[in-house]
Amino acid sequence: MIAALSLLAYALMLALAGPRLLRASSWADRAPRLAIAAWQALTVTVLASLALAGAALTFPTVTVSRDLAGLLQACIMAIQEQYASPGGAAAGATGAVLALTILGRTLWCVGRGLAGMALERARHGRILDIVGRDNKQHGIVVLDSDEATVYCLPGRRRRTVVTTGALQALDEAQLAAVLAHEHAHLSERHDLILGFSRALAAAFPGIALFRLAAAETARLIELRADDAAAARSGRLTVAGALLAVASPGKTPLPSIALAAGGAGAAARVRRLIPPHNPLGRARTAAGSLAVAALLTLPVLLLGGPAAAAAGHNLCPGISTSASSPAA
């Protein structure tokens, strides 16, 4: 019970305070890769804590025994005892529903999201195969369109697509910067990270944490790819390339493109103009440690109170240390 309550409290605290801490932090834009990891760790930890809390409610803790038969016997007795009382049975049932709902909903939505992504990509790719022109020199696919745009199609047959409008707007150095940006997306599988965080947002639409995590992940992967491109081509070249592709040209951009991310694109250019100011090594290491701690704490919370109560453990848990004989 103590484990379940502390896990629930941990999840609640993270869900409420986590986004505020991460969004208020000024380091996220200076270390986008760490910030991406922190957001994913935050969402995974909240889900895992809730699911583990459910499991802790369902399975009573028992004294760890020396041998498996003793453990099983103690387990059965503890379960019988818990479920003999109406209160214990209700808590157990609630816990089971909580754990299974979270696990099931997460797996279902992530699976469906990734499958949908693969289908959409395959359909897009089939059309691209026929109407796109291969440019072997740059390793890109060219689309004949005045609309200046660049995007990539991740997956097994990954491709970077550039429209003729974008090719006209970019000079050689800027094109190299754009391709480095897309290469970072492809090689670091940003599509999977984004797909995962969006699937969680779709799975639990009521919870602000997941919505924020998806939005921030979408923003941060662009910053990360900009940094990767800047390392190759220089920050001002990347800024120039962004402006060249994003600036409204002869053809007016569709209103959705402007409405959805006008501010985001401009903020990216502004970020690239001053000299690079990455997060220091010590602070990056501290941040990485914090992310790791975030993830391991629920496991400690689950095992901690049990261990403190002299060798108690979760019922189905297999323990290697046999501290006291079975009751």
Partner: peptide
């Protein structure tokens, strides 16, 4: 499904 480069400004 697709990952872009930049939106409009």
């Amino acid at each position: 499904a697709l990952v872009g480069f930049v939106e409009g400004i």
